[in-house]
Amino acid sequence: MKEAGYTEKEIEQIKADIKHFENVRKEIQLASGDYIDLKQYEPAMRHLIDSYIGADESRMLANFDDMSLVELLVEKGQEALKDLPKSIRDNPDAMAEAIENNLRKVIIEESPANPMYYEKMSVLLDELIKLRKEATLEYEKYLNEIIALSGKVKKPNTTSDYPTSINTNAKRALFDNLGRNEAMAVKLDNKILTTKKDGWRDNIQKSKAVRNAITEVLKSYSITDDNEIHRIFDLVKNQREY
């Protein structure tokens, strides 16, 4: 920068500006939940910033580069809030909105895997937001409720709403989206597992075999509507376990 004609004072000011706006960017991303997961690139970027800019303040948010805010809330509870930027941590409304925005993002992202379950989670979040804005819920109690909801969103298996046989995410998705019919969910899960072949989503014949298996099981429960069969087929395609 000296060779480019900048004075020492100008160099320091530019470095300070970069530090400031990098932190502002991080805070906005965290508060809004509007960020792209670039975990594989961020460490290298942080190294460049730390090495050439000396952005010491940016380390304040380092914990969030490998875990989302919602994941930290599930793992650490209210202790996770201590890692938030000071400008958010010292403002209860800003902190609440940051949690809500991040939680909403997770619900939207996870919804295709279990629409009925995450629709229920969305309703619960809306209710908590309404209570907070109407100031009808004490802030401490609100934090406990929102952290509990974060656990249900990230780890559906930790809830006690499922029979013991509904013990995988795929079974839970079938159970929730088939009228909570335990026998049908278990039967369909077994049928899919014994029918599916490797790479079935990208192969027309293999995909057709899975759809036929779904049709067969649903038909045994008097479900023959093509739209319903297609809905369950799409649900099955969104299950990582299949």
Rank of each mutant, 00 (worst) to 15 (best):
E57V: 06
A44G: 07
D56E: 12
Y41P: 01
G54A: 08
G54R: 06
S51Y: 07
P43A: 12
N63R: 07
H47T: 08
A62H: 13
D56L: 08
I53V: 09
K39H: 04
R59W: 04
P43R: 07
D56I: 10
E42Y: 08
G54W: 02
Q40C: 09
F64S: 05
S58H: 01
A62S: 14
K39E: 15
L61V: 11
P43C: 09
I49M: 13
M60P: 00
A55Y: 00
I53D: 09
A44Y: 13
Y41F: 09
N63Q: 07
F64N: 09
D56C: 04
S51P: 03
H47D: 15
D65R: 04
A44V: 02
D37C: 06
G54Y: 04
L38P: 01
K39I: 05
D65C: 02
S58K: 01
S51E: 13
E42D: 07
G54D: 10
N63D: 14
R46W: 11
K39V: 15
D50H: 03
M45I: 14
N63K: 11
A44E: 15
D50G: 06
S58V: 04
A62D: 14
R59A: 02
E42P: 00
I49C: 08
L48A: 12
M45Q: 14
G54H: 05
R59P: 01
A62L: 03
I36A: 11
M60Y: 00
H47P: 01
P43W: 15
I49W: 09
E57Y: 06
A44T: 03
N63F: 01
Q40H: 06
D50A: 05
I53C: 04
L48N: 05
I49D: 13
A55P: 00
E57C: 03
E42Q: 11
Q40N: 10
R46H: 12
Q40G: 01
D37V: 14
Y41D: 15
A62N: 06
K39S: 12
D50I: 03
R46E: 15
I36N: 03
A44I: 13
E42H: 02
D50S: 12
D50R: 10
I36Y: 03
R46F: 14
R59Q: 12
A44W: 10
L38H: 03
L61I: 13
Q40Y: 10
S58M: 14
K39C: 05
E57W: 07
K39M: 15
D56F: 08
P43I: 06
M45A: 14
R59L: 10
Q40K: 12
I36K: 07
K39Q: 12
D37S: 09
I49N: 04
S51W: 08
D50F: 12
K39P: 00
